[in-house]
């Protein structure tokens, strides 16, 4: 996959279509399509505190590179994974999309809000917060280089393990 050098420009509705599609892939457990939305050097980061700046030396909820994302998705789909008996179902709502100007390295920075409801074994669980997406143009279309997920309860007590991507 080659990143093209030109600045990525997308309208809000084009960005919305993209974000809705990535959310739909998770909700329909189509992880192969979902993973194809990311660049090879992509990072998926859920900080554990609102103030965290360095995921290399601070704990995170998730700080996945692409290999980790692939392995995580394989675990979710593997036959017999203990934590997915029963499976987790999810439903995303993505909203409040704001498109920034492209940054100097050609990335388009997009802010939005999400509300994800998950259901597993009689328990309904809600996750809410803000997305920051760094999108780039490649010869295979628009891809995500960074997905940052800021949960409003990131530093709270968690009585459910978050198993699927937000």
């Amino acid at each position: 996959m080659l990143t093209t050098s030109h600045k990525l420009r997308l309208s809000r509705s084009e960005v919305e279509d993209f974000l809705f599609r990535q959310a739909e892939y998770i909700d329909s457990r189509d992880y192969e399509s979902w993973l194809s939305l990311f660049t090879p050097d992509a990072l998926y980061w859920i900080p554990v505190r609102p103030t965290d700046t360095d995921p290399e030396t601070q704990l995170s909820f998730m700080y996945d590179d692409l290999p980790t994302m692939v392995a995580r998705c394989e675990r979710l789909l593997a036959f017999g994974t203990a934590g997915q008996q029963p499976i987790t179902r999810s439903s995303h709502v993505v909203s409040n999309v704001r498109v920034n100007d492209a940054t100097s390295n050609g990335e388009l920075v997009v802010h939005s809000r999400f509300h994800v409801t998950q259901f597993r074994r009689d328990v309904l669980k809600s996750y809410a917060g803000a997305y920051t997406h760094h999108l780039v143009a490649t010869d295979e279309g628009v891809k995500i280089r960074l997905q940052r997920v800021d949960l409003i309860d990131c530093d709270g007590i968690h009585d459910t393990i978050l198993q699927i991507y937000l």
């Binding site: 934590g83 968690h158 393990i161």
Partner: peptide, 13 residues
Amino acid sequence: SPSNVVAADDFEA
């Protein structure tokens, strides 16, 4: 972590 992939399966046990 609260979204780990190892203890997630232990917690089920």
